[in-house]
Design a protein around this nucleic acid. Structure first.
Length: 621
DNA sequence: AAAAAAG
């Protein structure tokens, strides 16, 4: 019933044959007609054993790694490698014997208890049987503009096969049915494998988690890390992944577990609102990658149950959020004031769909000689999301929402209602709207920070399963959550920041599928008129004339913080490109005129600087 | 001003 891996390729090619025609700015067009899936690549004409069937995961006690029929086909000798400068790598002539899975630490005994994270795949979405839709529509990503800046940017890859991620990880990639890397993965993975720090700005739903997870897992598998101290009850993770909400941390954990299945790399999640004792027990069983929200991590650090002194990889998901006003002190405490190795001694990766310049400036404190990567337009899935704005007075919002929901119910696809995510401004407002919807016969639930963690997770489960096809949410659900089958995002209350809008609408149109986003605009949202109109225009959306009129009245005080003015097509642009020419002392925190971004060589004509003629590559060139 | 994140 699931399509096979090869069929997925065929399907994704057949589904959307015309996508490539529109964008004249793209300079890279992978030769789709000659595409060969990774498991068929680099294969000598005969003699190699067949690739394993990805529809039949091996039993849970399957031997790990180097032996068995899976070894070989994906890594032909002579395929290009990006292992330069990675300490500890052992080249093994294309057969990956010996370089992998020889970590010390001896918790192999725990491995046979490792729960198969792929086992419950088919029962998690009982309401949706069209499994082929879970395959990413790659053609939707073919023509995406890419911009990189920094010293010696490693070239992108076109397939997973040409990256030496290791047998066990590649097997998991196949189990996940990832056919080929998404644009952000194509660029970010070689950068990370090259040992470089990275600030990456990529559209919502484009596979950022895998982009930072694969190099971490691969690096840990290869690393000959010194025996970690075994302090009384302290654990010493090698990698830390931080995210701004508990649900997102959960999701990253789930995903990372799949990627690390039978690799010997242990992933543990820690977040607030859940009993700490169970998390402590998990930690005591060993942890290589710790996924956490900031508050609970600080708690664990203060109890000395976790030490960061062995951290080799730090990833901040939704990094701009993590560094905004509310979170910044906590993040600085974790990254700068505990025992984490400084930039240069760890590898740091920051990911988000949006990256305002002022946040980039803060973030550069955490980075060393980093590469900036921007993939896609205006931080959004743009073309895949149809955006509508309607003028709705505050008092009319509920009845207007009901009209939308009625229409959607009647248009219901295949008899089942598609999922609708409704964003509101306040927690009280969320409860009130949920109650009203339920009273009016619409099965709704709500997620916000005043609910218990149990309630939050239950709400999300109920929504995902289609049991409660309407979810009323505050911004707690705005970022990162990957909820399949969200057909419609309603901004019942518009946010005050255009970046929040970008993240919210990004809950639909995921994995290359289309989606609809409707915003209710009224006199309370005047400050959003211009940023919203600009964003929609850049995304080739139809902008109502009335909104353009509001937008042209420039007197609204900039409350919407139109960071994109003059910003052009990219959701993110490397702030170093501008600051290196303005040289304002305020950008450098005073006096620190060359090393402020960890960029050796400064900004002048020196080799490795940021002159327009060197140290920069771009997909446009 | 609101949201999130520790209990």
């Amino acid at each position: 019933m699931r399509t096979s891996w090869a069929d997925s390729v065929a399907n994704s090619q057949a589904e959307n044959p015309t996508t490539g025609a529109s964008d004249n700015n793209s300079s890279f067009h992978p030769a789709r007609s000659t595409y060969v899936p990774p498991h068929l690549r680099n294969r000598p004409p005969s003699s190699d054993p067949p690739a394993p069937s990805q529809s039949a995961p091996p039993p849970a006690n399957d031997r790990v790694g180097n032996s068995g029929p899976a070894a070989g086909p994906a890594w032909g000798a002579g395929s290009s490698r990006h292992d330069a400068g990675r300490p500890g790598y052992v080249s093994s002539g294309g057969r990956n014997v010996g370089g992998w899975n020889n970590r010390s630490g001896g918790w192999d005994r725990g491995r046979d208890r490792e729960v198969n994270p792929f086992a419950d795949e088919d029962i998690t979405e009982p309401a949706f049987s069209d499994q082929e839709n879970t395959v990413i529509n790659f053609d939707a990503y073919e023509d995406i503009p890419v911009e990189t800046s920094g010293d010696n940017v490693p070239p992108p890859v076109n397939t997973f096969a040409e990256i030496d991620l290791g047998e066990a990880l590649n097997l998991n990639i196949r189990r996940c049915k990832y056919v080929k890397p998404t644009p952000v993965q194509r660029h970010a993975i070689p950068i990370s494998l090259g040992g470089r720090d990275l600030m990456a700005c990529a559209q919502t739903g484009s596979g950022k988690t895998a982009a930072f997870c694969f190099p971490i897992i691969s690096g840990i598998m290869q690393g000959q890390y010194a025996q970690r101290p075994r302090g009384a009850r302290t654990v010493y993770p090698l990698a830390l992944i931080l995210s701004p909400t508990r649900e997102l941390s959960c999701q990253i954990h789930e995903e990372t577990r799949k990627f690390s299945y039978q690799t010997g790399v242990k992933v543990v999640v820690a977040y607030g609102g859940a009993p700490i004792n169970q998390q402590l027990r998990e930690l005591e069983r060993g942890v290589d990658i710790l996924v956490a929200t900031p508050g609970r991590l600080v708690d664990l650090l203060e109890r000395a149950r976790v030490s960061l002194q062995m951290i080799r990889y730090l990833a901040l998901d939704e990094a701009d959020r993590m560094l905004d006003m509310g979170f910044e002190p906590q993040i600085r405490k974790i990254v700068e004031q505990m025992d984490m190795p400084p930039p240069g001694l760890r590898q740091t990766m920051l990911f988000s769909a949006t990256f305002p310049k002022e946040i980039q400036r803060l973030a550069s404190d955490f980075l060393s000689n980093y590469i900036f990567l921007a993939v896609g337009r205006v931080g959004s899935s743009t073309d895949l999301i149809v955006q509508r704005v309607e003028f709705v007075h505050e008092s009319d919002k509920r009845s207007h929402l009901m009209d939308l929901l009625h229409a959607q119910r009647e248009n219901g696809v295949h008899g089942k209602q598609s999922l609708t995510l409704v964003f509101v401004e306040t927690k009280k407002g969320a409860d009130a709207l949920e109650h009203w919807l339920c009273m009016n016969g619409f099965p709704a639930t709500t997620i916000h920070g005043d609910r218990t963690q149990q309630e939050r997770e239950q709400a999300l489960r109920s929504f995902k399963s289609g049991n409660t096809p309407i979810l009323v949410a505050t911004d707690v659900a705005a970022r990162g959550l990957d909820i399949p089958h969200v057909a419609h995002v309603v901004n019942f209350d518009l946010p005050n920041d255009i970046d929040d809008y970008v993240h919210r609408i990004g809950r639909t149109g995921r994995a290359g599928k289309s989606g609809l986003a409707t915003a209710f605009f009224n006199e309370n949202n005047l400050s959003m008129a211009k940023p919203l109109a600009d964003l929609m225009q850049e995304a080739n959306q139809e902008v109502p004339a009335w909104l353009t009129r509001y937008a042209s009245r420039v007197s609204y005080g900039g409350g919407g913080r139109n960071r994109r003015s003059g910003g052009g097509r990219f959701g993110g642009r490397d702030f170093r490109r501008e600051s290196s020419f303005t040289r304002g002392a305020d950008f450098y925190g005073g006096g620190n005129s060359s090393g402020g971004y960890g960029v050796p060589g400064g900004y002048g004509g020196a080799p490795g600087g940021y002159g327009p003629s060197n140290g920069m590559t771009s997909a446009w060139d």
